[in-house]
C-alpha cells in the first residue's frame, strides 16, 4: 500500500503540493488528472523519492520513503516508473536496455538478466526487437521498451507520468493497450494521464488535482458523471 499523509512540496517559494492525503491499495489502478502545473508529476517524484519533501510523509508498504535510514535504491525496485520522455538508453539494444538494471542493481547473472529482459520485451509485444537499437524503434515502441525495462525489476507498483503525451496520436493506442494489459494482470498503478478514456475505463479511482490540491477523488463514474467540485467539472468540460 502507498500511504501519503499531509504531503507538502515546495520548489523554493513555490508551493507545489499543498497537503496531499492519499492511499493506494494493492491491486488498485488510480488515474491522476488535472491541468498543467497542478503538481501531478511532482506527486509521483515524491512517491519514489526523486524529489525531497518539506512536510508530511510517504510510505510504501510501511517503509517511509523520505526517512533518513531508508535504502531508497532498494525501495525504488518496488516502484517502476515510466516517464513522458521514453528515455531509452541509446547506446544499448532493446534487450540490453531491459537487462541492465537487473544485472547491476539486482546482481543477476548476464544470462539470467537477458532471460528476464527477453520475457518482459515479449510481454509488451517487442519480442521481435531484442537486438534492435532504440534509434530504430518508433516512439510507441520505445515507450513500451521503457515499460518492459521497469517491469524487469519486478516492481509491485508502477507509476506512469503521462506515458503517452509525447507520442504521435497514432502510437498512443499501443502504449495504452500495454498499460491496460498490466492493469488486467493486477498491477498496482498510479497513472498521471490526459487520456480521459483510459482514466474512465481502466481506473478504479480517479483523482483530480487543482493547483497543488487534490480537489476530488472517487470512482470514474463520480468524477466523469457527477463531479462534486466546480473545478473538476470545468476541467473536464475543457478537455472534452
Amino acid at each position: 500500500m502507498i500511504e501519503i499523509r499531509d504531503l507538502h512540496k515546495y520548489f523554493g517559494a513555490l508551493h507545489v503540493l499543498k497537503g496531499i492525503d492519499l492511499e493506494v491499495q494493492k491491486g488498485e489502478v488510480l488515474s491522476v488528472i488535472g491541468a498543467s502545473g497542478s503538481g501531478k508529476s511532482t506527486l509521483l517524484y515524491c512517491i519514489n523519492g526523486l524529489e525531497v519533501i518539506q512536510q508530511g510523509s510517504v510510505a510504501v508498504d510501511e517503509t517511509d520513503v523520505h526517512a533518513k535510514g531508508t535504502d531508497i535504491n532498494k525501495l525504488r525496485q518496488k516502484l517502476g516508473m515510466v516517464f513522458q520522455q521514453w528515455n531509452s538508453f541509446p547506446h544499448l539494444t532493446a534487450l540490453e536496455n531491459v537487462a541492465l538494471a537487473p544485472k547491476i542493481v539486482k546482481g543477476k547473472s548476464r544470462a539470467e538478466a537477458r532471460e528476464i529482459a527477453a520475457k518482459q520485451l515479449a510481454h509488451v509485444g517487442l519480442g521481435e526487437k531484442l537486438d534492435v537499437y532504440p534509434s530504430a524503434l518508433s516512439g510507441g515502441q520505445q515507450q513500451r521498451l521503457a515499460i518492459a525495462r521497469a517491469l524487469a525489476m519486478e516492481p509491485e507498483y508502477m507509476l506512469f507520468d503521462e506515458a503517452t503525451s509525447a507520442l504521435d496520436p497514432e502510437l498512443v493506442g499501443e502504449v495504452l493497450d500495454t498499460m491496460r494489459l498490466l492493469a488486467e494482470e493486477g498491477m498496482t498503478m498510479i497513472c498521471v494521464t490526459h487520456e480521459m478514456g483510459f482514466a474512465r475505463d481502466v481506473s478504479d479511482r480517479v483523482a483530480f488535482f487543482h493547483q497543488g490540491v487534490m480537489e476530488e477523488i472517487g470512482p470514474p463514474e463520480q468524477i466523469f458523471g457527477n463531479a462534486k467540485s466546480e473545478h473538476t467539472r470545468k476541467f473536464l468540460a475543457n478537455v472534452r
Binding site: 525496485q77 516517464f83 528515455n87 538508453f89 547506446h91 538494471a101 547491476i104
Partner: peptide
C-alpha cells in the same frame, strides 16, 4: 537529460551506477 538520469535512478541504480552506466557512455559519446 535529467529525465534520462531520473529514469536510471528510478530503476534502483545508485548515483555511481547512473554515472558509470548511463552518463559515461551517453555523455562520453
Amino acid at each position: 537529460d535529467t529525465s534520462m538520469r531520473r529514469a536510471a535512478r528510478s530503476l534502483g541504480m545508485t548515483y555511481w551506477q547512473d554515472l558509470r552506466h548511463v552518463v559515461l557512455p551517453i555523455g562520453g559519446r
